[in-house]
């Protein structure tokens, strides 16, 4: 049976096939078996359209996140309007603002407390890299030094549309996930460890200063002066 690349979402279909999945993707998913494939599609479709973000604000970017949740930008159009205050009920963490060293253990702990499958959007320059406050002694130079990040949304602060785009990227990522096989995400594998060590306050810095399993300092691209 061939599937048209652009599937219609008319109500006559029992389960509307998700948009954004190419023929090849679906064919490869079919290889996993009929039962799991259909289940996988429904599962991913449902997940992607009912994301529950963690209600969580760090700094200025959080105000833009509130605007996204409000009537004008209306994140409810993407099914993600239910902000949960408890990490146990949330499946998306939007790190929206400067993460300081004093706040970092709490952020990692919240991330650990969220149940799998979970995703992380980094919103704004600060959370991605330290942003304008990069030279600060109390600023973590990017939350990706401690926890895995799925989508980076640049900006200072990112416009609400940019955050919505980030959310759509997450939705795309969810729809493309397989349940089995080598491409399965970490939380479907038995051997994977989904708990990230919480750093401790040290005398001068956090201990450890980054999580070596998640992040390694990149070798700088040093150009010769004559080049």
């Amino acid at each position: 049976m061939s599937i048209p690349a652009t599937t219609s979402t008319s109500s006559s279909l029992p389960t509307p096939p998700p948009a954004g999945i190419s023929v090849e993707d679906r064919e490869s998913m079919r290889k996993q078996g009929v039962l799991l494939t259909s289940f996988n599609e429904i599962y991913n479709w449902g997940r992607a359209n009912s994301i529950w973000p963690l209600q969580f604000g760090l700094a200025c970017c959080a105000i833009e996140m509130i605007c996204v949740a409000a009537a004008r930008f209306d994140i409810a159009r993407f099914g993600a309007e239910i902000f949960r205050a408890s990490p146990r009920q949330a499946d998306l963490m939007i790190v929206n603002g400067t993460v300081t060293k004093k706040m970092l253990p709490q952020v990692v702990r919240l991330w650990n407390q969220m149940g799998e499958p979970k995703f992380c959007i980094v919103m704004g320059a600060c959370a991605s890299s330290g942003g304008p406050f990069k030279q600060g002694y109390n600023v973590v130079k990017g939350i990706d030094r401690y926890i895995p990040v799925d989508v980076y949304v640049p900006g200072c602060p990112p416009r609400p549309e940019a955050l919505l785009n980030g959310l759509m990227e997450i939705q795309k990522k969810m729809r493309e996930e397989t349940l089995t096989g080598p491409n399965a995400p970490r939380y479907f594998r038995k051997d994977a460890d989904c708990v990230y060590p919480v750093p401790e306050y040290g005398g001068r810095d956090l201990v450890p200063p980054h999580n070596p399993k998640v992040w390694k300092p990149a070798a700088p691209i040093v150009r010769d002066a004559k080049a």
């Binding site: 990069k134 030279q135 130079k141 980054h210 300092p217 700088p220």
Partner: peptide, 11 residues
């Protein structure tokens, strides 16, 4: 300050 921000790709 702790030596942790020099890891820029193009310093």
């Amino acid at each position: 300050s702790p030596d942790d921000y020099e890891w820029e790709p193009t310093p």
